[in-house]
Design a protein around this nucleic acid. Sequence first.
DNA 1: CTGCAACTTCAAGTCAACTTGAAGTCAAGG
DNA 2: CCTTGACTTCAAGTTGACTTGAAGTTGCAG
Lengths: 157, 157
Amino acid sequence: MDSRDVLSVGTVAQRSGFATSALRYYEAQGLIASERTGGGQRRYQRSVLRRLAFIRAASNVGLSLEEIRDELQRLPEGRTPTRADWQRITRHWRGRLDEQIAALERLRDGLDSCIGCGCLSLQRCGISNPGDWAASTKTAPGAAFLPRLLREQHPPN
Amino acid sequence: MDSRDVLSVGTVAQRSGFATSALRYYEAQGLIASERTGGGQRRYQRSVLRRLAFIRAASNVGLSLEEIRDELQRLPEGRTPTRADWQRITRHWRGRLDEQIAALERLRDGLDSCIGCGCLSLQRCGISNPGDWAASTKTAPGAAFLPRLLREQHPPN
DNA sequence: CTGCAACTTCAAGTCAACTTGAAGTCAAGG
DNA sequence: CCTTGACTTCAAGTTGACTTGAAGTTGCAG
């Protein structure tokens, strides 16, 4: 099947669950690397699979590809990350997740306290105005504070 | 200041915290309405402010503009929503938030159970592979399962 | 009546993370 | 050797929610 230890883009796609176009994109963005055959086709080392698992995990945690690239670059060159490397990173992620959860809980609890009141005041309601930013003198942004959250609870086909 | 009870786009922008361009966009998308002066400038009723608060709140909860438009259309024509209307909607939101929170908690807990293990297996790790979808026969998507989450915890300037 | 900020429309640009398409090349089983 | 599926590049398209720019018009304080 695979000539000793090197994987074609199709094989990596199949094993990682990423589309080949995504793999090429990640390479263009500097998240993964490949060698080339004489004819110019990509050949990957098996370690790319772990790297891709890392990418998937990080992106599940909400990091942008840019942030992921930065974290990957901060990992020791080439070698498998140690327990300490991994802990440093997951601690970072853990904080992020905790923040996100807390933000959503504030929103939900505000919603509960609001149920039935119909208040939705631009200045006072915690749901339409979380964090009280609108009370400041700065002009408020048009964008929402909370993210475009997952619309599909399950992966698309 | 404001000629009795009608607001210009600039005034609404200032009071709602949305950019004028966003207000025009919302109007184009059918989320809000306006009358026009003889010269064609927009004049808003004060009720638009509540509507905009609703829009902000809903978008904080993670609804798309399309979904928000649908919910707005399901509200009784013109009249202020009753407690029952409001409860129906917030119950819907509450469920959404609960789901989102639960998803993040699963991720966080998986992270905890993973700390230090360095496993990140494509097939087995719950962080890189939440929900076990990759175990299915279908080709996995390239996209993340969880949303692009809030990167700025506070509104941009 | 004038000046100028605030408004108008419409098209195009932005961002992220990819996907799609076109047009052509490579690798390997038979 | 030949076929054919897998691969290559590069440009352009997609989605959502807006913003920006250009070019022109309106409304109101003075």
